[in-house]
């Protein structure tokens, strides 16, 4: 076997391992949600029926028990639960009076739209900050890194309120109720993107600083390439690639933030639904959303890892 095909086998094996790992994690997440239903105070039948406060009748409880197989042993219940999940059945939400999967289907799009838009925006802001301020003298550099540290510690709910107050209520640049399309996406995305840009900026700044010291940059300069050209061509490329791996992590952070931002802006989405599920003690909805988000998150991280493997041949695994 040539070393080339050997490497290909290694890589394939690595990819298979990553996919297997992700599948394991998804199974684990499903198990955690199942356990959470059974570890909480009160009977699972009650939880499925919307909690004691929903005053389920004896008949309703009996129905729920039958529907979810609650009169079987825990192991059987667990297998039934997994079976339902495999078929895409996440149960029925008492507070929304709809199948959990329907609620999620209606809300997953807006949340993805928000998080992806925020991710891109955060990257653009972070890279801009780096390009403009890195190695531009002490003052510019300090301002840039100071801003990054400051924005990174802004709580989203506070930033969101201030943006709403200033940009929507006072200056009236954006609609207060969110509106539709781009207009409605702008403020929530900005709210999520600014603190994230602070974090990403701290990483890209360091990468960028390091990249600008590399010999090939000096060579490029010697060949008469302008400062901006060097920054864009060489610095940026090397700064972005390692940072890209943060996107998987950033997605998780954005989903956490989306819970707050969607509530704050009364925006449709999984975060908004989740908060309602929690406050209304709607366990089927809560665990359904938590599980689906976990799966999306795992898959996204897997995708980033695989893409990274493709994008950066320097990286040797296995």
């Amino acid at each position: 076997m040539t070393s080339r095909s050997l490497r290909a086998v290694h890589r394939l094996r690595w990819v298979a391992g990553r996919i297997g790992g992700a599948a394991f994690v998804v199974w684990g997440a499903a198990t955690v949600t199942f356990l959470s239903l059974h570890l909480m105070p009160g009977s699972p039948a009650m939880a499925y029926a919307g909690g004691a406060a929903a005053h389920p009748t004896r008949a309703e409880l009996a129905y729920v028990s039958r529907e979810y197989g609650l009169d079987h042993s825990l192991v059987v219940q667990y297998l039934l639960y997994l079976g339902r999940l495999v078929r895409g059945n996440l149960g029925y939400s008492p507070s929304q009076q709809q199948a959990v999967s329907t609620v999620i289907r209606q809300n997953v799009g807006p949340t993805m739209e928000l998080t992806l838009c925020s991710l891109v925006l955060a990257w653009v802001l972070a890279v801009l900050s780096s390009i403009v301020t890195v190695r531009r003298g002490r003052v510019a550099s300090s301002i840039g890194s100071g801003l990054e540290i400051l924005t990174a510690s802004l709580p989203q709910y506070w930033l969101g309120i201030l943006l709403l107050e200033v940009l929507a209520f006072h200056l009236r640049i954006f609609p207060a109720t969110g509106g539709t399309g781009f207009e409605g996406l702008a403020l929530p995305s900005l709210t999520l993107a600014v603190p994230l840009a602070g974090f990403i900026g701290q990483v890209t700044r360091e990468e960028f600083e390091a990249a600008l010291e590399q010999p090939y940059v000096t060579t490029a300069r010697a060949r008469g390439m302008g400062d901006w050209g060097v920054r864009l061509r060489h610095g940026l490329r090397h700064a972005i690639l390692p940072g890209l791996t943060m996107s998987g992590w950033a997605l998780g952070s954005l989903i956490s933030g989306a819970v707050i931002v969607e509530t704050l802006f009364s925006r449709q989405g999984l975060g908004n639904v989740l908060v309602q599920g929690v406050t209304q003690q709607d366990m089927p909805l809560t665990i359904g959303v938590v599980l689906v988000v976990a799966v999306v998150y795992v898959v996204a991280n897997l995708a980033v890892d695989l893409l990274y493997q493709v994008a950066d041949p320097r990286l040797k695994r296995a």
């Binding site: 684990g28 997440a29 956490s256 707050i260 976990a294 998150y297």
Partner: peptide
Amino acid sequence: RFLEVMFAFPSMLLALLFVAMF
């Protein structure tokens, strides 16, 4: 492995799940 599973949940969701339970 357990930690890997826990990392599948964005922290805010883990916290909210706990609040929903208790």
